[in-house]
Amino acid sequence: MQAIWKGAVSFGLVHVPVKMYPATEDRDIPLRMLHREYKEPIQYRRTCPKCEQEVPWSDIVKGYEYEKGHFVTFEQEELEQLAAETSHEIRILNFVDMTEIDPIYYQRTFYLSPEETGEHAYRLLVRALEATRKIGVAQVTIRQKSSLAAVRVVDGVLSLVTMFYAEEFRDRSQIPNLPEEAKVDRRELDMAKMLIDQLTGNFEPEKYRDEYKERLTKAIEDKIEGRDIGTVPEVNTPNVLDLMDALQASLKLLKPLEETGKGDKAYKRRRAKNQKNRTGA
């Protein structure tokens, strides 16, 4: 795997030389846009509206429009110089408890591996974060983009998760049709909590499947073989208008599954834990 970044994690005066690797990969099935008649891929050209000519990459600069039609431009070297000061450092600003960061802040995860000269410091930081159950809040510049980041341990490996800055979140007042604060029917609330309890379990990521990707893969194979892909059967969702009826029907639907799994030790532990959380014991 090709490293996409090389630098060091720093906290205080401690520097841990690391290389960065993507922790995830895009598994989407690539679909290209074609001309329906000729089945040829559509091309996009970089053209200038003034000279109406295609512009090579060597003649392209980046610019900021400070007034309509007026730009200040930056050469690539200028942008690199602006980023140079922090481009090779993951600077940890402080440490926080693992539960303090809401997942809404997280963007993309990367793995960090140690350089040969930094293996001892790397292992030390991993052990220290595991022992204290802390996450390092850091700043990092990757490909000329500055990001807030979280440095944490995943399965014994240092990872970095890029994060949004607080200023990047929209104010909730911009969201239309938010319900006003209102009292909730006690019986409905109790049944909703029961339904959540019945559907509560451990997070097992391997059991979740990309069903759309599976259907698309099958459809591609059928089309290659000249078979009709047919239509995806519609899901028959019961038309339940009353909220209480919907809650009762949902609990009734889950009851057979509960009866089937009651002998499972993991199920019993989960039920006891959920009951403890509800009672506050």
Rank of each mutant, 00 (worst) to 15 (best):
L199F: 01
R91S: 12
V96Q: 08
K134V: 01
T231Y: 08
R269I: 14
I135N: 11
E54Q: 07
Y44G: 02
G136R: 07
T24H: 10
A138N: 13
D28V: 04
L13I: 14
L247C: 02
K193E: 08
L82M: 15
R46F: 06
V240P: 06
N274S: 13
K276Q: 13
V151A: 03
A149C: 10
I90H: 09
L199H: 03
G118F: 10
N274Q: 13
S10K: 13
F203R: 08
P176A: 11
V184E: 08
T141H: 07
G69F: 08
A138L: 11
F95D: 14
L34H: 04
A182F: 00
L189V: 03
N274T: 09
I29H: 04
S159N: 10
R270H: 08
G230Q: 09
L124Y: 07
D197G: 12
E115N: 04
V16S: 10
N202K: 15
F74I: 12
E78Y: 10
F71I: 11
L251E: 09
A8H: 04
F74W: 12
Q198V: 10
E25Y: 13
A84M: 10
Q76F: 00
Y106A: 13
E225Y: 02
Y106D: 00
V14R: 04
I4Q: 00
R127K: 12
T99H: 14
D26Q: 06
M1D: 03
R152K: 10
T217Y: 08
F164G: 02
E67S: 09
K183E: 14
D155V: 08
L195M: 05
F71S: 12
L257A: 14
L189Y: 14
E234P: 02
Y21P: 03
E204G: 00
E188C: 11
V161G: 01
R269N: 13
P49H: 08
N274E: 10
P179E: 11
D222V: 00
R46S: 09
M98A: 14
G69R: 03
N274Y: 00
E37S: 10
E188H: 05
K252Y: 09
S146P: 07
E168C: 06
Q53S: 12
L253T: 15
S113F: 13
R45E: 12
L79A: 08
K62G: 07
N239F: 09
R187Y: 00
A166Y: 09
I229W: 02
P179L: 06
A219L: 05
E52C: 02
L124N: 05
A219F: 02
G263W: 06
A84P: 06
M20N: 03
Y111V: 14
C51F: 02
R227H: 12
A23G: 03
L216K: 09
E85Y: 07
M163W: 03
Y208T: 07
E116Y: 00
L254H: 04
S113H: 13
R215T: 13
L254I: 14
I42E: 04
I104E: 06
T47A: 08
I135F: 01
N277A: 14
A84I: 02
R270F: 03
E234D: 11
R91T: 14
I101N: 05
K183Q: 15
K276C: 01
E40V: 13
Y105V: 11
T162V: 11
E89G: 03
C51Y: 01
A121C: 07
I224N: 09
L148A: 14
